[in-house]
């Protein structure tokens, strides 16, 4: 009788342990999912609003995008894959901050080129004068 009770205790202990750890894993996964969801929706522009991201907006468009982002995160798609999916359909305009890629290279590099060019012109002039 005592041995049976001990077995019951051990089994219920292990079951409780499994339930607690699986809950912990689910909670952790949901945390990551929510964090990624917030990050992505903050990166995307609400195209039917003025200067608002999808995260802050509650328009029909933003609700649709939020649903799609959530669905794709649940399918284990990465942040890059989801943003690429959106850019493919809505264009670069949907990304609030222009991405550093081939198409936007001029946009990213032009300020630096302009500053360096200006400095070189000034140095050249100063050398000429001296």
């Amino acid at each position: 009788m005592k041995k049976k009770l001990k077995d019951y205790f051990q089994i219920s202990f292990f079951i409780t342990l499994i339930i607690i750890s699986s809950n912990f894993v689910i909670a952790k996964k949901n945390d990551t999912l929510n964090k990624d969801f917030d990050e992505i929706t903050k990166m995307l522009r609400c195209m039917s609003c003025q200067n608002l991201n999808v995260y802050e907006s509650d328009t029909d468009f933003s609700k649709q995008i939020k649903k799609e982002v959530f669905d794709q995160l649940k399918l284990n798609k990465s942040k890059e894959e989801i943003v690429d999916f959106m850019v493919e359909r809505y264009g670069e305009y949907i990304v609030l901050k222009p991405r550093f890629d081939g198409k936007n290279l001029i946009l990213w590099l032009s300020p630096f080129v302009l500053i360096i060019s200006a400095l070189l012109i000034i140095i050249g002039k100063m050398r000429k004068n001296s």
Partner: peptide, 16 residues
């Protein structure tokens, strides 16, 4: 060579 910065500047402004 001394004119290169000016050429770059003109090209970028042209694009913009």
């Amino acid at each position: 060579y001394p004119k290169l910065p000016l050429i770059f500047t003109v090209i970028i402004f042209g694009f913009l």
